[in-house]
């Protein structure tokens, strides 16, 4: 049971990340690989806030959101100048820069030594020490993000984003300042992924920069591609598949000596087949 709760917590955290990324890529058509960077900043805000500054968990969430929003606002201004592949490449650069800072700013982040002893959330006298309680809290935030996604999706802001995604020049010709919209959704997406980072840091209790590399950004990108772009449900299902599939493969009785390698191959092949037969993802409303 503990194992399933553990998986469910990670599923919740990755659902939050996928929802925030899908706002950017699915709604706005802005392919970003920088999500792991903001996820990491959120995690470090919580880790440093709780272990060094004595803040409570929820204060550090707000701290992470603010830091991410400020960074994303500045970077978003630069990114808004780019489109398509260029946007993805520049965002990947941001991810590498943030990883290098986490790795090398040792006086603050402790570099490769990481930060350990990160506490659990507390509300008044109640502490979320048990995994079941922690899962409940993760679920509340995941649902809140899901609702927020749907609300934005149906709002006029969301509709402009989707228009921008389909044809930026046409959207501009209708009088919309697309750079402004791109910047706002980038800030929002970054700020929200900080929440997932906070939960990850608190849950795992020890973080180091290795969890927030570019490859993590690619993993998040894979989640929303498999689940489906521009779909809140797709984000959730994508996270479910990519978190639980490797676990399912552990139980299929592969030869002991080569099980780990075969699991990786099967995992890759399944994703490949899924992309061949369902290129828009399972619930995708938009295909890149």
């Amino acid at each position: 049971m503990e194992y399933l709760i553990n998986l469910a917590i990670l599923f919740g955290i990755y659902s939050m990340l996928a929802l925030s990324l899908n706002m950017l890529i699915g709604m706005g058509g802005l392919v970003s690989l920088a999500q792991a960077a903001f996820y990491g900043i959120g995690a470090y805000a919580t880790a440093i806030g709780m272990t060094s500054l004595g803040f409570g968990f929820f204060t550090t969430i707000i701290l992470g959101i603010i830091i991410n929003a400020v960074i994303a606002f500045v970077v978003g201004k630069i990114l808004a100048r780019f489109q398509g592949d260029y946007y993805a490449i520049v965002s990947a650069g941001l991810s590498i820069i943030v990883f290098s800072i986490l790795q090398n700013w040792k006086s603050v982040t402790h570099g490769p030594l990481g930060i350990f002893g990160i506490g659990k959330p507390e509300i008044g006298s109640y502490a979320f020490y048990s995994n079941t309680a922690f899962l409940g809290l993760v679920a509340v935030f995941t649902v809140a993000l899901y609702v927020l996604y749907q609300w934005i999706n149906k709002s006029s802001f969301g509709r402009v984003l989707k228009a921008l995604r389909e044809d930026e020049k046409l959207t501009q010709s209708m009088g919309y300042k697309t750079k402004h919209y791109k910047s706002v959704i980038f800030v929002l997406s970054a700020a929200l992924s900080g929440i997932a980072g906070a939960f990850f840091a608190s849950y795992i209790a020890f973080i180091d920069p290795s969890s927030f590399q570019l490859k993590e950004g690619i993993f998040l990108f894979t989640i929303i591609i498999v689940g489906g772009l521009s779909s809140a449900l797709g984000s959730i299902v994508g996270a479910l598949i990519l978190i639980s599939l490797p676990e399912v493969l552990r139980f299929i009785g592969l030869p002991y000596e080569t099980a780990a390698q075969l699991q990786q191959m099967i995992y890759g092949a399944m994703l490949l087949l899924m992309m061949i037969f369902k290129p828009q993802g399972l619930f995708g409303k938009y295909r890149m």
Binding site: M1, E2, Y3, L4, N6, L7, L10, F200, I204, F206, I207, D208, S210, S211, E247, R250, Y256, A259, A260, Q263
Partner: peptide, 22 residues
């Protein structure tokens, strides 16, 4: 019982929880 963690913290955490529960 040996499980692969790819030297990744979250995978290692999944492994140890699986070791305990399963």
């Amino acid at each position: 019982v040996v499980e692969d963690d790819q030297y990744d913290l979250k995978k290692a955490l999944i492994n140890v929880n699986r070791f305990k529960s399963v």
